[in-house]
């Protein structure tokens, strides 16, 4: 598109100002993580007395923060939960979108209705149930409840209904069964949407606070978010520098995932949005 230079300039300026607004709070966060606690409110973006002390005390082996263990717990539960969600939801979405069986519609409406129930209404029942199974304070508690989220099924359902029928029919002519059709056609074609679902589940589980807070009790089973809250939100006041150091640390996995999976994620988000 041809545009006069000044218009280009304005557009560019809008984007630059917008990006700075987006990045600025993060820079503050980063800078505070490198300040001693007493300098946290000194109002300078560049730390006057830069220090690694916050990171050192967060990572110190003797400190009550078992940061590496928490990180491991968060990563493990987020990765296993997203893999499980991707497989379960893909199978279910294929069944609901492309196959026929008794009660299909009812199931679909049930799933959609469940999207509207706020988590707070199910917190206590879920807790009681896991207590009865003896699953509290285990990886089971940190992983299993996330596999029930109906959003993923709904998302993939929308995606699969838009895959052209001809592909499926060609496979049927070749004598492929339902499972093979899923594995050879829907699974590969659905990769952008499934990957997005996986990524969103990963971030959702990794960043979840409420459920891991309630469902785990021992120090060694805590996740990163709960650990961050415990370490830094002391009973009354807050040590901002330590909190920010821990926050920066806790962001590393999602940050890495963001950098490497950016293209895939954005493509997925985009395709999903278009097909929904």
């Amino acid at each position: 598109m041809k545009m006069p230079g000044w218009k280009r300039g304005i557009i560019f300026a809008i984007l630059v100002v917008g990006s700075l607004f987006m990045v600025f709070p993060f820079l503050w966060l980063l800078s505070t993580a490198f300040k001693p606690e007493s300098d946290a409110f000194d109002g300078h973006l560049i730390p006057g007395h830069p220090t690694f002390a916050n990171f050192a005390s967060v990572l110190a082996p003797g400190s009550s923060a078992e940061v590496l263990r928490w990180l491991g717990n968060s990563l493990l539960s987020a990765i296993v939960a997203s893999l499980a969600v991707m497989v379960l939801d893909s199978l279910a979405a294929y069944g609901l979108a492309r196959l026929q069986f008794f009660g299909r519609k009812v199931i679909l409406y049930l799933l959609i209705a469940s999207l509207m129930v706020p988590f707070i209404a199910v917190l206590i029942p879920l807790y009681l149930e896991l207590a009865n199974f003896g699953l509290l304070d285990t990886y089971g508690a940190l992983i299993l409840p996330y596999t029930a989220n109906a959003f993923g099924v709904f998302l993939l359902y929308q995606f699969y209904t838009n895959i052209p029928k001809e592909l499926e029919e060609a496979a049927i002519v070749d004598g492929a069964g339902k499972f093979q059709i899923w594995r050879r056609i829907f699974l590969p074609l659905g990769i952008p949407a499934t990957a997005t679902l996986g990524m969103m589940t990963f971030m959702g589980v990794y960043n979840d606070f409420f459920w891991p807070l309630v469902a785990t009790s021992s120090n060694s089973m805590r996740t990163m978010t709960v650990g961050v809250a415990l370490m830094a939100i002391g009973p009354y006041s807050t040590n901002y520098s330590l909190l920010m150091a821990l926050t920066v640390f806790s962001m590393i996995p999602t940050f890495i995932a963001f950098i490497f999976a950016q293209r895939q994620l954005m493509q997925g988000v985009a395709t999903t949005g278009i097909n929904l």
Binding site: L91, Y94, Q100, V117, V122, E129, A150
Partner: peptide, 27 residues
């Protein structure tokens, strides 16, 4: 054949029943 089709949905339905359906009914 319908039961075969239903099997695709079953694993998810089990998860749904245990960790969302039942808690909602209980709630």
């Amino acid at each position: 054949s319908q039961i075969g089709s239903f099997l695709f949905v079953l694993p998810y339905l089990v998860a749904f029943g245990f960790f969302l359906g039942y808690p909602i009914v209980f709630g």
